[in-house]
Amino acid sequence: MTERELDTHLVTILRELESLEYRQTSPRRVRIDVTREALPGLLELLKGRASYVHLSAISCVDWIEDNEFELVYHLWSYESNHLVSAHTRIPRETARYISVYDLYKPAAFFERDIFEMFGVYFEGSPHMEKFILTEWDGPPPMRKDFDAEAYVQETFNWQSYHPDWLKELEEEGGGVAIRPEEVRR
């Protein structure tokens, strides 16, 4: 792939900025790696000068071994038909970043989702509150150090669940065929 196939506005902007790397991963996909300080400015340029008006999604990946969260902003241009994915990393301890809601309205949904699932707080985002997990007060469940299966085993006591219908079945010689502790892993 040559840069000629990329739209020229995009290349101009990417050349202007320091502290970023970009490469074309397929004919209509561009990957940009950018520092967390430079990302909001990059998005502003992409939207304002290169027609990347559609924020398709913000994805969050928990790289627990590096002690970092990766945030990926997927942007689409309806004019040049390219999808730009801007990758940045933030420290896992502080887990705070800046909202891009002023630039992209759809960001509010994705930022709230990441706040709920990963516990990353976005400053300036309009809805930093519970949406899906309203009755959950445990740790953010999508973090890698939250083990959903262990939580289920600890919280819900399978053994003590012994309703009348099961007793009746057991009297007839039936019942639970494989007890949870015997499940082959």
Partner: peptide
């Protein structure tokens, strides 16, 4: 304009 701003597809 609204549809584009709101991320409608």
């Amino acid at each position: 304009e609204q549809a584009l701003e709101w991320g409608v597809t």
